[in-house]
């Protein structure tokens, strides 16, 4: 390692002479806005919570029709869950976000960033699962209504099976596309961080 020892000396003797920043410049600099990945994660996560919560609030529901279909209690239950779940996740997200500290060691820092991000990921998974369940359960009840039974009868003996197949396919296709776009964005944002974490954990 003799060669590297020589480089060590060169390294330690170096003096950065140009572009030295004076105290005025440094003072201005420290009051600028951080553009760190943690800030991005925070903004994106808040946006995700806001969008999903707004969809919940503004989703138009025809209560009378749902009552007729026998889905009233089911929809009430789902609505309560979709209000409680975000609150629970927002609390977890905030708790994890606060635990991110740049003065931790590198491993702990990366872990806390990934944990914060994962909270939002699990939130999306939970909400999407609730939606998938609600769509499928809602459909299974709705399909019993006489007007739907007539439509199904038009498809012949396998009518029930065909209609179910179409509904399940579209439900999963719809959720699959949302998930794919989401994971792609998520992957791009955290690619470097995950690679560094893997490298740190390797032997």
């Amino acid at each position: 390692m003799e060669d590297l020892k020589n480089y060590k000396k060169v390294w330690q003797d170096q003096e950065y002479t140009d572009n030295q920043l004076d105290s005025d410049t440094i003072t201005k600099m420290i009051h600028r806005r951080s553009s760190s990945i943690v800030k991005w994660i925070f903004y994106i996560s808040v946006l995700e919570f806001a969008v999903l919560t707004l969809i919940n609030i503004f989703a138009k529901t025809d209560w009378d029709e749902l009552k007729d279909m026998g889905l009233y209690h089911f929809i009430i239950g789902i609505s309560i869950i979709t209000y409680i779940v975000p609150l629970l996740f927002i609390y977890l997200f905030y708790k994890n976000y606060k635990s991110i500290s740049v003065t931790n060691n590198t491993k702990e820092l990366i872990q806390s960033i990934l944990k914060t991000r994962n909270t939002v990921k699990y939130y999306i998974y939970t909400i999407l699962s609730i939606y998938a369940f609600a769509i499928l359960y809602g459909f299974s009840v709705a399909i019993q209504a006489p007007e739907y039974l007539d439509i199904i009868a038009n498809y012949g003996d396998n009518g029930q099976l065909i209609v179910w197949g179409i509904v399940v396919l579209f439900t999963f296709l719809f959720l699959g596309i949302i998930l794919l776009v989401y994971l792609l964005l998520y992957g791009i944002l955290l690619k470097r961080l995950q690679a560094n974490y893997k490298e740190l954990l390797s032997n």
């Binding site: 590297l4 480089y7 060590k8 390294w11 330690q12 931790n104 060691n105 590198t106 491993k107 702990e108 820092l109 470097r192 690679a195 560094n196 490298e199 740190l200």
Partner: peptide
């Protein structure tokens, strides 16, 4: 890579292994 860079920088600064391990976790 990013982790190797950190290791080399700490080595060139003559930091002991104990400190390097603590810094990276």
């Amino acid at each position: 890579n990013d982790i190797e860079k950190a290791l080399v920088l700490l080595y060139l600064e003559d930091k002991p292994y104990k400190d390097i391990a603590l810094c990276l976790g």
